Computed example of a mutant assay.
Amino acid sequence: MVAAVSEPRLELPYEFRVDDYEQTLHDVRHLIAPELGRWPDTALVPGAGR
């Protein structure tokens, strides 16, 4: 249950290629996390929040 956890965990297979990891992490950060009420940390993005 997503609402019952404070930090969701994402497990990815070792067999992924680098571009598969990048695409999956991008999609989770920008598409899935916001739908769960979690937003990317803009402090980690240069120039964000200015």
Rank of each mutant, 00 (worst) to 15 (best):
L12D: 02
T24P: 00
Y21S: 03
M1W: 08
Q23S: 15
R17E: 15
H26M: 09
R50G: 02
A48I: 08
P13T: 08
L31E: 01
G49K: 05
W39G: 12
L10C: 11
T42D: 08
Y14K: 07
P34Y: 06
V18S: 13
E7P: 01
E15D: 15
L25P: 07
P34M: 10
R9W: 04
G47Q: 10
V28K: 02
V5C: 13
R50P: 04
E11W: 08
L36H: 03
H26V: 01
L36K: 01
V18Y: 12
G37H: 07
E7S: 09
E35D: 03
R9L: 10
W39N: 13
E22S: 14
A33T: 03
A43Q: 00
E11I: 07
L12T: 05
S6N: 14
H26G: 05
E35C: 02
Y14L: 12
L31T: 01
A33S: 09
A48S: 13
R29E: 13
E11T: 08
L10S: 06
Y21G: 05
V18P: 08
S6Q: 14
R9G: 01
V45H: 09
L12G: 03
E11G: 02
V28N: 02
A33H: 02
Q23V: 15
G37V: 04
A43I: 00
R50D: 02
D20Y: 05
G47K: 13
V28G: 02
Q23Y: 15
L31N: 07
L12K: 03
E7N: 10
G47Y: 12
E11A: 05
V18Q: 14
V2K: 09
V2Q: 08
